[in-house]
Design a protein around this nucleic acid. Structure first.
Lengths: 214, 214
DNA sequence: ACCTGAACACCGTTCAAGT
DNA sequence: ACCTGAACACCGTTCAAGT
């Protein structure tokens, strides 16, 4: 309401104008606390003490805002052991796991990144790092790029599904065929191990291809 | 407007009430012709000559409607050579390609299926068929299930990205880093071959795991 | 440079009531 | 059983105008 801000010492502060980073930060906060459905331009503006129309000075539209959010999420992916002194297989696994963790760190993180992927704004970096790790295994340049992109899509698709399942479970909206899956040992963690299995298949495939040099 | 329908011969027909299949059919038609953003309850109702609220007699909500649409899309996936007489690797590839093609057959098909996957309503069948093909290779039961699910997520993620890219290209909304990609030979088909490479990696990984029996 | 105020053209969903 | 009519509580976006 009041653009003026008064400090505890009585001194008057400048009207608190927001930066682009402030907006994406608030968007990330909403995403984390409430999820993508609540990340509306109106909610975001309210959290910043702005009118919705003010956001359009910082971003041309919502899609651009989401792209910036996706960028931030992906950029926080850091592999556990960044030293590339170890095995190239561990390097690939490490990069993939780091991305996987980064996507799961924010509610609906995988969906946000996935929906922005085609614009090539943030995942290009993740793809490049996957490709670099793959190249350590001695795979050809163009083949490494394509393998990295394929691995990227697997990681994103898998992460998104895990988050969807978590959300569906918490809402109690599960189809009988899924809920009564006979293989489920614990009962609610049906997807356990799928990511690891898929990742291992990818790495094993890379190794096999490296040997036979198709 | 008028619930009565008059045939060319002058005979009066019964008021044309709609079935569930009519609704999903109209939804598929909108999806194919215009895409997911235009698949609104109001557009759908208008195409059927109904009020929007009438749709809620056939489906409890939009999500359930989309699940039915996704079911229909996935169920149309038929492998090229259904005879399992050939190689198990060809069977796996054939199933994956069939799913890939089915998702690409409808505009935004991959996104619709992806967003409905967690409810386990339609892709369970696709996953089971992939698992069956994988089992032909002699892979263990639980491992086959997980491998199939991982492959499923790769196929969906990859398909969705291809459709996104097509749409982004047609709208001319491409980031400079993507548009000026030096590897692009043709220029607009940057994702060419990624699906095939990823699929080959998966199959090679399955074969390697089958031999070493980890 | 950064934001307000007001409007435009939409959404999904509910629910009493009709036939 | 199938649908209408009307309303409720929202959306993203534009644009003139303010400071």
């Amino acid at each position: 309401m009041n653009p003026m801000v008064t400090n505890p010492d009585g001194q008057e502060a400048r009207t608190p104008r927001r930066s682009r980073a402030d907006v994406t930060g608030a968007a990330l906060a909403i995403l984390d606390a409430q999820g993508l459905p609540d990340l509306t331009m109106r909610n975001l503006a309210a959290r910043l003490g702005l009118q919705p129309s003010a956001l359009y000075w910082h971003f041309p539209n919502k899609q651009a805002l989401l792209a910036a959010v996706a960028d931030e999420i992906v950029s926080r992916a850091r592999p556990a052991v960044s030293d590339a002194q170890g095995d190239w297989r561990d390097a690939v696994r490490s990069e993939a796991v780091a991305l996987h963790d980064a996507l799961l760190a924010f509610k609906d993180g995988a969906e946000v990144v996935s929906s922005t992927l085609a614009l090539g704004l943030g995942a290009e970096e993740a793809s490049a790092r996957l490709a670099a790790a793959i190249r350590l295994g001695g795979v050809d340049g163009m083949l490494a790029d394509r393998s990295a992109e394929a691995l990227l899509h697997f990681v994103i698709g898998q992460s998104w599904h895990e988050q969807q399942r978590l959300q569906a479970d918490s809402l109690g909206v599960v189809a009988p065929s899924v809920a009564s899956h006979p293989d489920a040992l614990v009962g609610d963690r049906d997807a356990s191990g799928v990511f690891e299995v898929g990742l291992d298949l990818f790495v094993a495939g890379l190794e096999a291809g490296r040997l036979s040099e198709i």
